[in-house]
Amino acid sequence: METRFSNKEHAQLLELLLDITVQLISAGAHTAKAIRIAQRIAQAYEYEADMIILPKSISISLSRKERRHVRLTAVRKTMPLVLNSTFNHQMSALSWRAYDEHLPLEEVQQHFLHMLALPRINFMLVLCMVACANASFCFLFGGDVIAMVLVFCGTASGFWLRRQLMHNHVHHYFALILAAFVASLISGLGSLLGFGSTPSVALATSVLFLIPGVPLLNALIDILEGHVINGIASFVSCCTMIICLALGLLCTLFVLGVENL
Protein backbone atom coordinates (compact mmCIF):
# COMPACT_ATOMS: atom_id res chain seq x y z
CA MET A 1 0.00 0.00 0.00
CA GLU A 2 1.27 3.44 -0.92
CA THR A 3 1.72 5.75 2.05
CA ARG A 4 1.10 9.48 1.78
CA PHE A 5 4.72 10.53 2.00
CA SER A 6 6.30 7.86 -0.15
CA ASN A 7 6.15 9.99 -3.26
CA LYS A 8 9.08 12.35 -3.44
CA GLU A 9 7.86 14.08 -6.58
CA HIS A 10 4.56 14.90 -4.91
CA ALA A 11 6.22 16.73 -2.02
CA GLN A 12 8.77 18.38 -4.29
CA LEU A 13 6.07 19.74 -6.59
CA LEU A 14 4.07 21.04 -3.64
CA GLU A 15 7.10 22.94 -2.33
CA LEU A 16 7.82 24.37 -5.77
CA LEU A 17 4.21 25.47 -6.25
CA LEU A 18 4.21 27.20 -2.85
CA ASP A 19 7.48 28.97 -3.71
CA ILE A 20 6.15 30.06 -7.08
CA THR A 21 2.80 31.26 -5.75
CA VAL A 22 4.39 33.23 -2.91
CA GLN A 23 6.77 34.89 -5.37
CA LEU A 24 4.01 35.64 -7.87
CA ILE A 25 1.83 37.33 -5.26
CA SER A 26 4.82 39.25 -3.94
CA ALA A 27 5.71 40.37 -7.47
CA GLY A 28 2.22 41.81 -7.91
CA ALA A 29 0.18 39.14 -9.69
CA HIS A 30 -3.54 39.19 -8.95
CA THR A 31 -5.04 36.22 -7.14
CA ALA A 32 -6.70 34.51 -10.10
CA LYS A 33 -3.50 34.73 -12.14
CA ALA A 34 -1.34 33.18 -9.40
CA ILE A 35 -3.86 30.36 -9.01
CA ARG A 36 -4.02 29.74 -12.76
CA ILE A 37 -0.25 29.55 -13.11
CA ALA A 38 0.16 27.17 -10.17
CA GLN A 39 -2.68 24.94 -11.34
CA ARG A 40 -1.30 24.88 -14.87
CA ILE A 41 2.07 23.65 -13.60
CA ALA A 42 0.38 21.06 -11.39
CA GLN A 43 -1.61 19.78 -14.36
CA ALA A 44 1.54 19.51 -16.44
CA TYR A 45 2.63 16.73 -14.05
CA GLU A 46 -0.79 15.06 -13.76
CA TYR A 47 -1.63 16.66 -10.42
CA GLU A 48 -4.50 18.88 -9.29
CA ALA A 49 -3.85 21.88 -7.04
CA ASP A 50 -6.65 23.21 -4.84
CA MET A 51 -5.68 26.58 -3.46
CA ILE A 52 -6.66 29.17 -0.88
CA ILE A 53 -4.98 32.56 -1.17
CA LEU A 54 -5.44 35.06 1.64
CA PRO A 55 -3.67 38.40 2.11
CA LYS A 56 -1.15 36.97 4.58
CA SER A 57 -1.03 33.26 3.73
CA ILE A 58 -1.30 30.77 0.94
CA SER A 59 -2.45 27.18 1.17
CA ILE A 60 -2.13 24.52 -1.51
CA SER A 61 -3.57 21.05 -1.42
CA LEU A 62 -1.98 18.91 -4.10
CA SER A 63 -3.42 15.59 -5.21
CA ARG A 64 -2.76 13.09 -7.97
CA LYS A 65 -5.11 13.51 -10.88
CA GLU A 66 -6.23 9.92 -11.01
CA ARG A 67 -6.00 9.32 -7.23
CA ARG A 68 -7.54 12.36 -5.61
CA HIS A 69 -7.38 10.80 -2.13
CA VAL A 70 -3.54 10.84 -2.20
CA ARG A 71 -3.19 14.39 -1.05
CA LEU A 72 -0.55 16.66 0.48
CA THR A 73 -1.45 20.06 1.91
CA ALA A 74 0.76 22.90 3.09
CA VAL A 75 0.45 26.53 4.16
CA ARG A 76 3.01 29.29 3.62
CA LYS A 77 3.30 32.94 4.70
CA THR A 78 3.21 35.54 1.92
CA MET A 79 6.06 37.99 1.39
CA PRO A 80 5.93 41.80 1.22
CA LEU A 81 4.94 43.31 -2.12
CA VAL A 82 7.91 44.05 -4.39
CA LEU A 83 6.54 44.62 -7.89
CA ASN A 84 8.25 42.67 -10.62
CA SER A 85 6.33 42.39 -13.90
CA THR A 86 9.23 40.72 -15.66
CA PHE A 87 9.10 37.83 -13.23
CA ASN A 88 5.32 37.46 -13.58
CA HIS A 89 5.59 37.55 -17.34
CA GLN A 90 8.36 34.94 -17.46
CA MET A 91 6.68 32.72 -14.89
CA SER A 92 3.47 32.70 -16.90
CA ALA A 93 5.42 31.75 -20.04
CA LEU A 94 7.30 29.05 -18.12
CA SER A 95 4.05 27.54 -16.86
CA TRP A 96 2.83 27.22 -20.45
CA ARG A 97 6.11 25.64 -21.47
CA ALA A 98 5.87 23.14 -18.65
CA TYR A 99 2.33 22.36 -19.73
CA ASP A 100 2.92 22.15 -23.47
CA GLU A 101 6.46 20.75 -23.64
CA HIS A 102 6.38 18.60 -20.47
CA LEU A 103 9.62 20.01 -19.05
CA PRO A 104 11.15 17.91 -16.24
CA LEU A 105 10.33 19.27 -12.77
CA GLU A 106 14.00 20.00 -12.03
CA GLU A 107 14.22 22.15 -15.12
CA VAL A 108 11.19 24.20 -14.08
CA GLN A 109 12.77 24.66 -10.68
CA GLN A 110 16.05 25.83 -12.21
CA HIS A 111 14.30 28.26 -14.52
CA PHE A 112 12.33 29.59 -11.56
CA LEU A 113 15.44 30.16 -9.44
CA HIS A 114 17.18 31.77 -12.40
CA MET A 115 14.29 34.23 -12.92
CA LEU A 116 14.34 35.17 -9.25
CA ALA A 117 18.04 35.93 -9.45
CA LEU A 118 17.74 38.26 -12.48
CA PRO A 119 18.80 41.82 -11.63
CA ARG A 120 16.15 44.55 -11.44
CA ILE A 121 16.34 47.80 -13.39
CA ASN A 122 18.98 49.99 -11.72
CA PHE A 123 17.50 51.97 -8.82
CA MET A 124 19.00 55.32 -9.83
CA LEU A 125 17.63 54.85 -13.35
CA VAL A 126 14.16 54.12 -11.98
CA LEU A 127 14.48 57.16 -9.71
CA CYS A 128 15.33 59.39 -12.68
CA MET A 129 12.52 57.93 -14.76
CA VAL A 130 9.95 58.37 -12.01
CA ALA A 131 11.10 61.93 -11.41
CA CYS A 132 10.87 62.69 -15.15
CA ALA A 133 7.46 61.03 -15.24
CA ASN A 134 6.14 63.15 -12.39
CA ALA A 135 7.57 66.30 -13.97
CA SER A 136 5.76 65.33 -17.20
CA PHE A 137 2.61 64.93 -15.16
CA CYS A 138 3.10 68.44 -13.93
CA PHE A 139 3.27 69.64 -17.54
CA LEU A 140 0.13 67.69 -18.48
CA PHE A 141 -1.73 69.38 -15.62
CA GLY A 142 -0.65 72.79 -16.92
CA GLY A 143 2.48 73.48 -14.89
CA ASP A 144 5.28 75.76 -16.13
CA VAL A 145 8.99 74.90 -16.40
CA ILE A 146 9.81 76.03 -12.86
CA ALA A 147 7.02 73.86 -11.45
CA MET A 148 8.34 70.94 -13.50
CA VAL A 149 11.88 71.35 -12.15
CA LEU A 150 10.61 71.58 -8.58
CA VAL A 151 8.43 68.50 -9.03
CA PHE A 152 11.42 66.64 -10.48
CA CYS A 153 13.53 67.42 -7.41
CA GLY A 154 10.66 66.73 -5.00
CA THR A 155 9.83 63.40 -6.58
CA ALA A 156 13.45 62.27 -6.67
CA SER A 157 13.90 63.13 -2.97
CA GLY A 158 10.60 61.56 -1.92
CA PHE A 159 11.26 58.38 -3.88
CA TRP A 160 14.77 58.06 -2.47
CA LEU A 161 13.65 58.82 1.08
CA ARG A 162 10.88 56.24 0.96
CA ARG A 163 13.30 53.53 -0.13
CA GLN A 164 15.80 54.47 2.59
CA LEU A 165 13.09 54.39 5.25
CA MET A 166 11.81 51.03 4.05
CA HIS A 167 15.37 49.67 4.12
CA ASN A 168 15.62 50.79 7.73
CA HIS A 169 12.38 48.95 8.54
CA VAL A 170 10.33 52.05 9.23
CA HIS A 171 6.64 51.12 9.02
CA HIS A 172 5.60 51.51 5.40
CA TYR A 173 2.62 53.77 6.16
CA PHE A 174 4.84 56.12 8.12
CA ALA A 175 7.48 56.04 5.36
CA LEU A 176 4.74 57.02 2.93
CA ILE A 177 3.63 60.01 5.03
CA LEU A 178 7.23 61.25 5.31
CA ALA A 179 7.95 60.71 1.62
CA ALA A 180 4.75 62.55 0.64
CA PHE A 181 5.62 65.39 3.02
CA VAL A 182 9.15 65.81 1.67
CA ALA A 183 8.12 65.47 -1.98
CA SER A 184 5.32 68.01 -1.66
CA LEU A 185 7.37 70.40 0.49
CA ILE A 186 10.17 70.58 -2.08
CA SER A 187 7.67 70.84 -4.94
CA GLY A 188 5.81 73.56 -3.05
CA LEU A 189 8.89 75.74 -2.50
CA GLY A 190 7.75 77.73 -5.53
CA SER A 191 4.78 79.09 -3.65
CA LEU A 192 6.88 79.92 -0.59
CA LEU A 193 9.60 81.75 -2.52
CA GLY A 194 7.33 83.16 -5.22
CA PHE A 195 8.91 81.23 -8.12
CA GLY A 196 6.85 80.44 -11.20
CA SER A 197 3.21 81.06 -11.98
CA THR A 198 1.75 77.65 -11.22
CA PRO A 199 2.89 76.61 -7.72
CA SER A 200 -0.41 74.89 -6.96
CA VAL A 201 -0.01 72.57 -9.95
CA ALA A 202 3.40 71.55 -8.62
CA LEU A 203 1.89 70.80 -5.21
CA ALA A 204 -0.98 68.80 -6.68
CA THR A 205 1.33 66.66 -8.83
CA SER A 206 4.09 66.15 -6.31
CA VAL A 207 2.62 63.14 -4.48
CA LEU A 208 1.03 61.31 -7.41
CA PHE A 209 4.02 59.01 -7.86
CA LEU A 210 3.18 57.45 -4.49
CA ILE A 211 -0.26 56.22 -5.58
CA PRO A 212 -0.18 52.40 -5.38
CA GLY A 213 -1.37 51.89 -8.95
CA VAL A 214 -0.68 48.23 -9.63
CA PRO A 215 -2.10 47.00 -6.28
CA LEU A 216 -5.20 49.15 -6.89
CA LEU A 217 -5.67 47.65 -10.33
CA ASN A 218 -5.14 44.16 -8.90
CA ALA A 219 -7.73 44.83 -6.18
CA LEU A 220 -10.19 45.73 -8.89
CA ILE A 221 -9.42 42.65 -10.99
CA ASP A 222 -9.70 40.44 -7.89
CA ILE A 223 -13.16 41.81 -7.14
CA LEU A 224 -14.27 41.40 -10.76
CA GLU A 225 -12.99 37.82 -10.91
CA GLY A 226 -14.77 36.81 -7.72
CA HIS A 227 -11.84 36.90 -5.29
CA VAL A 228 -13.79 39.54 -3.42
CA ILE A 229 -12.16 39.12 -0.01
CA ASN A 230 -8.64 39.55 -1.41
CA GLY A 231 -9.85 42.41 -3.56
CA ILE A 232 -11.40 44.25 -0.62
CA ALA A 233 -8.35 43.60 1.55
CA SER A 234 -5.92 45.08 -0.97
CA PHE A 235 -8.35 47.89 -1.78
CA VAL A 236 -8.46 48.85 1.89
CA SER A 237 -4.67 48.82 2.16
CA CYS A 238 -4.42 50.94 -1.02
CA CYS A 239 -6.91 53.43 0.39
CA THR A 240 -4.93 53.59 3.62
CA MET A 241 -1.82 54.36 1.57
CA ILE A 242 -3.65 57.12 -0.29
CA ILE A 243 -4.83 58.58 3.03
CA CYS A 244 -1.19 58.50 4.20
CA LEU A 245 0.04 60.44 1.21
CA ALA A 246 -2.81 62.92 1.64
CA LEU A 247 -1.68 63.36 5.25
CA GLY A 248 1.86 64.10 4.08
CA LEU A 249 0.52 66.65 1.62
CA LEU A 250 -1.68 68.13 4.36
CA CYS A 251 1.38 68.72 6.56
CA THR A 252 3.00 70.59 3.68
CA LEU A 253 -0.11 72.71 3.16
CA PHE A 254 0.02 73.77 6.80
CA VAL A 255 3.76 74.47 6.65
CA LEU A 256 3.35 76.59 3.52
CA GLY A 257 0.21 78.29 4.87
CA VAL A 258 -3.18 77.31 3.51
CA GLU A 259 -4.24 80.92 3.00
CA ASN A 260 -1.44 81.54 0.47
CA LEU A 261 -2.56 78.74 -1.85
Partner: peptide, 13 residues
Protein backbone atom coordinates in the same frame (compact mmCIF):
# COMPACT_ATOMS: atom_id res chain seq x y z
CA UNK B 1 7.39 59.93 -20.60
CA UNK B 2 4.97 59.76 -17.68
CA UNK B 3 3.75 56.30 -18.67
CA UNK B 4 7.26 54.90 -19.14
CA UNK B 5 8.51 56.46 -15.89
CA UNK B 6 5.71 55.13 -13.72
CA UNK B 7 5.82 51.80 -15.49
CA UNK B 8 9.47 51.40 -14.55
CA UNK B 9 8.59 51.05 -10.83
CA UNK B 10 7.09 47.62 -11.54
CA UNK B 11 10.32 46.35 -13.18
CA UNK B 12 8.70 45.38 -16.50
CA UNK B 13 10.54 43.96 -19.54
Amino acid sequence: IAAAGFGSIANPP
